[in-house]
Each structure stands twice: as C-alpha cells, then as structure tokens.
Design a protein around this nucleic acid. Structure first.
Lengths: 222, 222
DNA sequence: ACCTGAACACCGTTCAAGT
DNA sequence: ACCTGAACACCGTTCAAGT
C-alpha cells in the first residue's frame, strides 16, 4: 500500500484505500450488504466504477480490508481483576458490538481472517486465560469455543424486526404436531424467546465459562 | 401444495415441488451455493426458467424448501442411556453432517426456520434435557447454546483445502508483531490448528456440557 | 392450467482507450 | 500513472403471450 519511501503519492482524485473503505462502510450502513456493490461505492465517491480496481484487485479484497478496518475500530474493554469476569466482559462487549454491526459477522463467515485488526480481541482473551494458569497452547484451545459461540450467537440473531421474528416463530412452533414434538410445543414461548435478546447469549456464555473454569482448575490441580 | 382432494394433479412436464427441490440439490452438489441459480435448476430439469415460478413464489421460497427437505434427511442417532452422552452423540452427529453439507449452515443464517424437518434435532435434544430433570422451558434455554455452538463451529470451518487454510493462518500469525500479540504469536501453531478439525469442536462441546451439567445439578438441588 | 421467450434492471469484471 | 466508458457474461424476476 505504501509507495516506497516516506511520502505518499496522492491520486488525481484524492483517492486512498482508506477513503474507499470509508465510502464502502457508508454504503453498507445505508444500503446493507446486498446494496454494497462496486458501482454504489464508486458513485458515492463520484468516480467511475473501474477506478476502484486501481486500489483493490477485486471486490473480495475490498471486503477484507473493510472487515479489518472495522474490526480494528471496535472498543475493547481493558478491565483488570480476576480472569473470569474480565473474559466475560470481553465477550459481552464483542457480542454487543457484533449485534450493532451484523455485517461484520456475515463477512467473517467467508474465510478466517488473520489480520491484526481482527485479532486484538483474541489476544486480550488469551492473556486472561494465560493469567488463569493455562499455557498459551491451552489458552488457544479454550478461547476457540468462546469465539465460536459469540460469533455464532450473533450470526443467528434476526437482523430486523426481532420481536416480529419471535412472534412468527412462536406461532410456527405452536403449529407443530404435539405428538411428534411434545417438548417443543410445550415450551414454544421459551424456545421462540431464545431467538432474540441478550439474555440467551449470557446464559450460554456463563455455562461455557463454567466449563472452562472447571477445566482451568483441573489443569492447575494436575 | 396438495390440490384439494386426494389425487395429485401431475403437471404436463411431470414436475412437482419435490422434483424441483431434488434438482436444486443436485445443482448445489455440483456447482456450490454460487452456482445455485434459477436458470441452472431449470436447465437441469430441461424446462424454461420461468416454469419454476409456478411452483415457488421466488428463489427464497425454493431455498427454504430445500433446507427443510435436506434437514429432514439427516440421520438422527436415537441412542438410549444417560442424558449427557446421548446429548453429546446428538450434537456430534449433527456437526459431522453439517460439515458434510456446509451449505445447510450458510442457508440457515438467512433466517430462523421453524419447519418440522429442521426441528427434529431440537426436539430430541430437548427430550434428553428434560429427562435430566429440567422443565421444558429450562430445557429450551439450555439447548440454545448447544445449537448455536454446533452451527457456529461448522460455519467457521474452512470449506476447502482445510490444511492449506491452517498453514496460511499459521504463517499469518507468525508475522504478527510479538510485542503487541505476545500470547498469539507464542501459540501460533495451536491457534491455527483450532481452525479446522473435529477435535476443537469436541473440546468446546465438552466444556459446554460441563456447564450445563452443573446447572442441571444446581436446578435439581434447589 | 401450465408453460415460456423476451425484456428489464441489475451484478462483477475485462478490455481498450483516454488524459 | 491514473482514470474510465463500453461491453461481456451473468443474475432474479415481470410481463405478455403461447398451448
């Protein structure tokens, strides 16, 4: 990206990779993922569509750069204290910011991203687990389910009209044949309720942390 | 779908919703999700593209029907015995079949699906949790994280060339600045290793089951 | 009733050309 | 070096028409 020496060559139109990423982010905010087209980004910048291809090889490259940039902008809580509440606060903060920017989750499904911006969260989480008494390798193993659960939960959250989705699901569950689905139909309201809301995330997070804590104590003991 | 009485009106071309879903599944197997277009499905059936719109209102409807049909075809292990190994076997079987049919995960991200075919797994899981001593409502709460973790893990698995993805991630992690990423760089191999493979799924599943079991015992005790 | 070609309003990207 | 219009090979879907 840098052009050799120290100074940066400014393009005729004042374009930079960063300004293009910024425009893409604005398009995303206004038109959503389906509306994020190369033509729309170029239009917002007032340049020809093909101009973008001088800065990014293709749309995938632009999307990768966008994920990295937006991930790096997320606020990481740097709390102190015991490892478990610290890890809990970290995952809650990550989750709530993923909920606000659902496209980040959708984009990450495309491939694992090992860019610095996207990995700061992981590093902080690993540090907490290491201070709990795990080796770096053990911490890596233990952090993966937290990551998967947090992103997974966010990715199954309804994007729009969550209360409508919950109501529709509730109705659909009640329509199931009770002889084939005895438990599901008798807990239809609670089942539908888990589809949205923060509470269901916290419940699973706490169960996962219970399991990890037990594992930490076993490792320490052995 | 059924036309009034008992007999079914066969179309001029012998088309049924089921035969269209079958064709869509074959296209999916051969060309993947990006190749699954209305034109491709119609071509495979030897009919005009627009003919499909007589059976499904739009592409989304066809996709929903496809998810439901394929979900219903998954093999559910109906083991007996204590609830925990039974639940563990259920999630392992679901996970391994999701890994074989990754598009099922991708399609489910679009919206929550409350069709019978997709909910049989949930019902079996809930029954195990109920036998463990939870009420239907408590079982619903406890099952959600298992569902989220299992689908989430499968959805972050690299679709192709997993060993290549792991190697690339390993190299990328080693390129991070060690002063900013001390734990990550010192556990680069283990971290990259968690991106693929069955083992990382089982580790997290067991931690989650540990947490749920503790919760079950607490509920029983109270 | 069932089926369909043409057409519309989109995509990402290649290519040759402009300054 | 930087930028771009035209064009290509696609999409999903509407519409009017065919049998």
């Amino acid at each position: 990206m840098a052009t050799g020496g120290g100074t940066r060559t400014r393009s005729r139109l004042g374009l930079t990779p960063e300004s293009i990423i910024e425009a893409a982010d604005q398009v995303l905010a206004e038109a959503g993922l389906p509306g994020l087209t190369m033509r729309a980004v170029a239009d917002r910048l007032g340049v020809g569509t093909m101009t973008l291809y001088g800065y990014f090889r293709d749309k995938d490259q632009l999307l990768d750069a966008l994920i990295d940039a937006k991930s790096a902008q997320l606020d990481i809580p740097r709390s102190s204290g015991p490892w478990r509440p610290r890890l809990r606060a970290l995952m809650l903060a990550l989750h709530s910011q993923l909920v606000e920017r659902p496209f980040l989750v959708a984009l990450r499904h495309r491939r694992p991203l090992a860019s610095p911006g996207a990995l700061r969260w992981t590093e902080i989480g690993l540090e907490a687990l290491q201070e709990a008494g795990l080796t770096p390798a053990e911490a890596a193993r233990a952090f993966r389910p937290l990551f998967v659960y947090t992103f997974g939960h966010a990715s199954f959250l309804p994007l729009e009209r969550p209360e409508q989705v919950v109501r529709d699901a509730h109705a659909a569950l009640l329509r199931l044949p009770p002889d084939e689905f005895p438990v599901l139909t008798s807990a239809a309201a609670e089942m539908a309720g888990t589809l949205a809301g923060q509470e269901s995330f916290e419940y699973g997070l706490d169960r996962l942390l219970d399991g990890i804590e037990a594992q930490v104590e076993r490792t320490r003991g052995g």
